[in-house]
């Protein structure tokens, strides 16, 4: 495997790409997010699986985003996502509101190579008229049974951070299986990990069940602490003080610029 870094992963993401991102509690490659901001990515289409937090707000603040597709966008305990809110007010991003299981269903359709997926509920929600790509059809197997269908969603890139990978590029994600769904559905998967381990993850059935096989993975970069200030399951908790400091600074455009400038000032922050 060639030596990848957050910067080389970011270079693999073209402007305009549709990128699947995990929620804050799962596996977020913040190192690559910062590298995307550093390289000035533009017009990215973010797909939240299914909600978006810190990493989405940073990309929006850095001017990298054109479209946000999410069931919710917030910083959780730290409150509203300030750059998301500002971009909505300014009209600089297009928001495609969804509901959690609709995003899962759309990715599951892509996972199967199927054209769409039906989903119960949602009919009568104002989400439906605002999503021209969703349709309500008659259940072909029922009688007078309207059902929502959502088109398959195959992101160009799934971007995630995980505890470990082996040298073949198999990536262990444990029970955080939304990361598996992202990798299955996306055309390409880019991963940062805490460590590259010896041996083959697929050889141990206990580990293999929670492992994204290398066949889905385009590139892996070893970036210890690559999810910080978010936490990483089983490894480290979120840095609440750092996230609170971000939420405070990002309330203004100037504050966000100062925050980002500080992040990008250190070479390791951009994975160079």
């Amino acid at each position: 495997m060639t030596a990848e870094s957050a910067a080389t992963l970011a270079a693999r993401v073209p402007d305009g790409a549709c990128i699947a991102l995990a929620p804050d509690y799962s596996g977020c490659s913040i190192a690559t997010i910062l590298a995307l901001a550093a390289r000035g990515a533009r017009e990215l289409h973010l797909v939240a699986v299914p909600q978006l937090g810190f990493q989405g707000d940073v990309l929006i603040g850095a001017g990298c985003v054109g479209i946000v597709e999410a069931a919710a966008v917030s910083l959780g305990e730290q409150g509203a996502a300030p750059r998301f809110q500002a971009a909505l007010r300014a009209g600089t991003i297009e928001m495609r509101d969804a509901t959690c299981p609709a995003i899962h269903a759309a990715l599951q359709a892509a996972e199967k190579g199927a054209p769409f997926m039906p989903l119960r509920g949602v009919i009568g929600s104002d989400l439906v008229p605002n999503r021209p790509d969703w349709k309500v059809i008659d259940n072909p197997f029922g009688v007078d049974d309207p059902v929502l269908v959502v088109p398959a969603l195959a992101p160009d890139v799934a971007l995630l951070h995980a505890p470990m990978a082996d040298r073949e590029g198999n990536v262990w994600i444990g029970i955080r299986r939304e990361l598996m769904l992202m990798a299955h559905a996306a055309r390409r998967t880019l991963v940062t990990v805490e460590e590259i381990v010896d041996g083959r993850l697929l050889d141990d059935p206990a580990l293999a069940a929670g492992t994204i096989p290398a066949l889905y993975v385009e590139a892996v970069a070893c970036v210890p602490a690559g999810a910080r200030p978010n936490g990483l399951f089983g490894r480290y908790p979120p840095d609440r003080a750092a996230l609170a400091a971000y939420a405070e600074m990002a309330r203004t455009e100037e504050g966000f610029a100062a925050w980002l400038g500080r992040q990008l000032a250190t070479p390791e922050a951009v994975g160079a």
Partner: peptide
């Protein structure tokens, strides 16, 4: 008036589904 809401909240989460099932 959506989508230019005066105050924007995080979003619908799973409500549009869970409320039905």
């Amino acid at each position: 008036d959506y989508p230019r809401s005066k105050v924007r909240f995080p979003g619908s989460f799973g409500s549009a589904y869970m409320y039905f099932v």
